[in-house]
Amino acid sequence: MSAQVEAGAAVRAKVVARQGFLQVLRDAAEIAKKDLRVELRSKEILLTMGYFGFLVVLIFSFSFYSNDAPISAVASGILWVSVAFSGTLGLGRILEREKEGDCIRALLLSPVSRPAIYLGKTFGVLAFMVVVELVVVPAVDFFFNLRLTGEQAGLLALTLALGTIGYSVVGTLLAAMLLRARAKDVLLAIVLYPLMLPVLIVGVKATAALIAPDLPMEEFVAWVRLLAVFDIVFLVASLWIFEPLVMD
């Protein structure tokens, strides 16, 4: 066997030996780290998402008024609409970056497993959405006079985390699938929202429960459990079908 083949094989032998779950996570983290580094340089996705999310909340806060005060009952819906809409902006762009310079081909050619590539992109989307939520949640709290307690804030963080995971998992898969489509931004919204409807509805219901005057804990727990189930189902299905969708 030639020196080049042996040298390359030796390098990959280490990778093959580490092809366990931890290695998948490590490779995914490497890809997500790269996405964050690129974003820190350009700042285009976070600024766009954050700005758009804030504007949505601001506009709605002036639309739902009763007795000179914003209606807090609609806050949960507006929060999730804001997160979902701004998330769509980020989803399209983060995958688009892999198309610029055709980097997706280099990623697919690497010895990194396909689930690692998928998870890496998903982690990146997740991180961006969390940053946007750090802007949107205080904005909703302020404009709709929610005055969340510490307990409510913690439970809201849990709800948003589960909802955002589901959104990122499905959104990344669809954005990857549409990477070579012509009208991908339009198509992404058309395909994503119907699929995300269960997550968004359950997220709205869980949030509405936790900002209700007397927190109905049993109802809240039921919604949150449902979100967790969605996340698991979507994650397993997405890991399974990622490679066939992005090939050729």
């Binding site: 390098v11 790269k34 690497s110």
Partner: peptide
């Protein structure tokens, strides 16, 4: 290929190091 397969916002060293890490 015709395309560079590299990320414009990363430096040359960051680009190649990123792939080197993926290749172990």
């Amino acid at each position: 290929s015709h395309a560079s397969l590299t990320y414009g916002d990363l430096t040359a060293l960051e680009n190649v190091t990123f792939y080197a890490r993926l290749y172990g």
